[in-house]
Design a protein around this nucleic acid. Structure first.
Lengths: 338, 338
DNA sequence: TTGAAAGCGCTAACAT
DNA sequence: ATGTTAGCGCTTTCAA
């Protein structure tokens, strides 16, 4: 059944039915209720594709993660779940852009270009913002907001939800200082962000600067975390506390430390970063730095819907700060304890 | 730019452009190549919503998981990733149905009813098949395939990818028997499937029937796994090997066992079920039963696309069997070993 | 092998 | 407050 048939059957014009559905106000409350009621009775549902065609909007936005590694899936899923609600409130559905193996970020582009499939995009950037892509997007007037560490302010009309990783890093530094740690290690990931910078700065100001040898660059998986830990602990004066750039690295490090007979946190404190939702599964007590996905999702949804409503205003960037979550893998140094 | 403008600009009719894009054969190879080339040059992309409207198809299928718990997200994501490729080969995009908090499986129904948004559905059922929903779906001629333990053969036109959980359970039983275990425990989840049944039957035939007291019903999270383990191990003659219905339960059980001072697998063997992709993170060496997501995804995609092409044939159900993955948490009993 | 024309189901300007 | 009409951009008969 289409709108015409339905309308004649209930004795109104298609326009009336249409306005009853979209709720555009030109209709009386009574008629509207009547139409909605009849819709349920007769089981009429409007054809969205027709609406999409005529209105030039799809009422869908894509969520795309530049970094398609499975490790990031968890974060993406977390964001997706958080964002789908707020988005719905603005009348939009979420389309999760899963790239089929080969085609990476460009799949997104195609989706965008294919236009009319989505009205806008939320990009979870892996700290190495894909400027090319963004320029392309912006040039096509595709409303777009980027979630990432970098504040985007050089590309017009692109919204920016910035993750400020500084407060969390600071808190970890303060925590370690307060716990009396003097030799502090850092296991970095290949995400190109400034967590280490923030952390090192803070430690210096606190009077316990980090030793070059206590910085280890690693990658993404637990194996690399483990390897980094071995590197750190095999030194003459090994750290008593370690901050790992990702929870996954921290998990690997902790596992390896335990293999070496160390107790966490009695012999060694370890703090992670990101507060992944699977954390309770892998390492329930991991002290870590949280990124507040709910807040982040709300901000992104709001910003995008603003852009959707009015594509010609540069949206105000929004900053989401990290914060320390105290659990059980960090404790005072043995010496400081007694 | 629309098809009309594009076509006049390159000097053909809209019809020709259209057939070049859809590849419907009525066009000469040369013309087709020319049109495709020009499309790239001029940057013309067809409006999908128009195509959707006129063709009555959306070229999208939904993936919906009845059980919206976060624990299942991992499995869903695994399936989604596996399925998006095969689907694309049949010309379909995947739309992951994430319900915004409140609205459960019915959100799916709405999406279906809203029709023309999706052409079909893949439902990951939580072993308690939602028959109502399926009947509704089937009655609206929405092609649909269900992934789950139950073989669906009583609802016409609904495809069924059945997970045969028997082979895996059998293998575990045989493994424990071969390793000389006599007292064998089972930690069940609240998924209503027959893994325990298969397992118990096999053990009985192998001459080491399971003791009633060695069956513990649990839920979903690590905490419940831990609690179950305490229950099992606090008995006079505790099991020397345990099969847990989910990896998550197994992880909880192992953690608790270690807390109690037991070594895995020296003092106690533990086998999980599902082979979740985060396993390497939580418990890298867990011996477990694998569900082959790739095969499953391929089967589901193929079946659905068949149904899409020809909605009036009852598709042949497909069975995917589980199998044991040997890793490091199962070993011969101490007694059997010496 | 190609073109012209009709119409998919809806919304929005323009009437009343 | 409601109805009439003209398209949205494409695919698909039908005709050449």
């Amino acid at each position: 059944m289409n709108i015409k048939e339905f309308s004649t059957r209930i004795g109104v014009s298609p326009t009336t039915t249409s306005s009853a559905i979209t709720g555009n106000g030109r209709i009386s409350k009574a008629t509207r209720q009547m139409v909605l009621q009849k819709m349920r009775e007769l089981g009429y549902t409007p054809n969205l594709n027709a609406r999409r065609l005529v209105s030039g909007r799809s009422y869908m936005v894509a969520l795309s993660h530049v970094d398609q590694k499975a490790a990031s899936d968890l974060f993406t899923m977390q964001v997706a779940r958080a964002i789908v609600g707020p988005l719905k409130e603005f009348g939009y559905d979420l389309w999760l852009n899963l790239a089929p193996d080969s085609m990476q970020e460009y799949s997104l582009l195609r989706q965008l270009v294919k236009s009319s499939t989505i009205d806008g995009t939320i990009i979870i950037s892996d700290w190495s913002v894909p400027k090319k892509l963004l320029r392309d997007v912006a040039s096509r007037n595709q409303p777009c907001v980027v979630i990432g560490e970098k504040l985007i302010d050089d590309i017009p009309f692109v919204g920016s939800v910035m993750l400020n990783l500084k407060p969390g890093a600071l808190e970890v530094a303060r925590l370690f200082a307060a716990q009396g740690h003097k030799r502090i290690g850092f296991i970095d990931s290949d995400l190109r962000d400034r967590v280490f910078e923030y952390f090192a700065d803070a430690l210096k100001k606190l009077g316990t600067p980090i030793n070059k040898k206590h910085y280890v660059a690693a990658g993404r998986d637990t194996e690399e975390g483990a390897r980094a830990l071995r590197r750190l602990m095999s030194q003459p004066n090994p750290p008593t506390a370690i901050f790992a750039r990702t929870d996954v690295l921290a998990i690997g490090a902790i596992r390896e430390a335990r293999n070496m007979g160390l107790s966490i946190p009695q012999n060694l404190s370890v703090v992670g970063h990101d507060d992944l939702s699977i954390l309770p599964l892998a390492e329930p007590g991991l002290t870590t730095v949280r990124i507040d996905c709910t807040e982040l999702a709300k901000a992104a949804a709001e910003m995008l819907s603003g852009l959707l409503r009015n594509p010609d205003t540069d949206p105000e960037p929004k900053v989401i700060s990290t914060s320390l979550v105290m659990r059980q893998t960090a404790a005072p140094t043995p010496r400081a304890a007694d």
